[in-house]
Design a protein around this nucleic acid. Structure first.
Lengths: 228, 228
DNA sequence: TATCCTTATCGTCGAGCTGACGATAAGGGA
DNA sequence: TCCCTTATCGTCAGCTCGACGATAAGGATA
């Protein structure tokens, strides 16, 4: 084994911040203000600071980019990218994080979020800077998989939500329509997935719906499988 | 945004090399020959070299540590660890890779593999150096999950294998007994999982078993779920 | 050779789950 | 009051699952 020092890297964290707005699965992007890729859309992110662990940097960047404070975001590591030529400035490794937010109004004035905007996730990619299209694709696939096996969908919703809102999350992220009656049966029947609050909410039209909160389960068993 | 340069890291790759030997789920460990953690068991790994991507370093380390060349290993990224205090020598980020090998006789003389040995995976950890117990636990959980959804189990077997050998992989990794008849039905019925070669193999005792190869499927649908 | 042991493979059966879809409930608006 | 919309509950045939019986096909042994 060769003695140190070795190759030196800069370590960054890139965020794939996802939400569901209306019927659309959207991701938060920023327009780059510096070279390289000046003017191109990219995932928000930044470099680690002294004393920070990866998750610390991800939480900090998320707060900076969204301008939202005090939220309890769902954050999960996706994977790490370190190809020698992925950044023309030198050797930069980036750790991708998947962040899930409910559809919140975002403050934009006077923050980093001023240059941030939501874009619908399209298959085929969005023409992002660096290898961010690939990172986005990996994160989206991870989100789709996590919807099957974990209560991740509740992170797209506010504290209290209806079954229809939860179903809209699955439909938007998976990109498939689901039968409302079968989905209702499965979602309310899965142990620990959702718990009723006893309250009701009247949508703009139609019968009022019961409200639920996220349940104690950390995994869905059996999983809610995507249709073939 | 602050201009560069930023905090500098060294980037390592650590390998969780798994196999199934007999009925045991085992992992490849090395005894550390230098400080820190001199003499303690650790995951094999090493630092990235100039021009290498992560997967290149993982493949190179795997060849060095096992002494095996020309094998086509299954390698998959697990996650990245970069806590500020995880390495007393400084800021070292490590990307963990899961590697799956069939039960092969390993050459040991005159290679890095001389100090390597297989240890059964135990719950509660193995008392490894650094944060390697945590890394091992994460990788093992990933392997258990991949067994459900992908043909990963075939990577534990040689090119040709019997259904009983495949079942032994599931039983060892999951740590649960499986019904041979039901497993046979599901494994042979899953589209693209295994394909019969037409050959037979006689085990030391009992009726000869049909041989199979890995099929073309990259995902198991429906998944082979772990028992509750 | 006949018997037994072992493992492989095929069948059977009832419970439970799935998707398709009918029926009813409960709000607002015309 | 009628109608439109969404929520929620039921029904039902088909499928899958786990438990387990039955048979096949080797070698070992009496």
């Amino acid at each position: 084994m060769i003695e140190r020092p070795h190759l030196s890297f800069e370590l960054a964290v890139d965020l794939v911040v996802c939400t569901v707005r209306g019927a659309a699965f959207e991701v938060l992007l920023v327009e780059r203000g510096v070279e390289p890729y000046l003017g191109r859309l990219a995932l928000p992110g930044g470099f680690l600071r002294a004393g920070e662990d990866l998750i610390d940097a991800a939480v900090r960047e998320l707060a900076e980019e969204t301008g939202l404070s005090g939220l309890d975001p769902y954050l999960e590591q996706v994977r790490t990218y370190a190809a020698p030529d992925r950044d023309p400035r030198g050797r930069v490794a980036t750790v991708a994080y998947l962040a899930i937010l409910p559809d919140l109004p975002m403050p934009t004035a006077g923050t980093d979020a001023a240059g941030a905007r939501w874009e619908p996730v399209r298959r085929g990619g969005l023409g992002l800077a660096f290898d961010h299209d690939r990172i986005l694709a990996d994160a989206v696939e991870q989100a789709r998989r996590l919807l099957e096996n974990t209560p991740l969908a509740t992170a797209f919703c506010r504290t209290e939500f209806t079954i229809a809102e939860l179903r809209a999350v699955y439909e938007a992220v998976w990109g498939v329509p689901l039968d409302p009656r079968n989905f209702h049966r499965k979602a309310t029947g899965l142990p620990g997935f959702v718990v009723p609050t006893g309250e009701m909410r009247s949508p703009p039209t139609g019968r009022p719906a019961a409200l639920f909160r996220r349940g104690p389960a950390t995994a869905l068993y059996p999983p809610l499988q995507r249709p073939a």
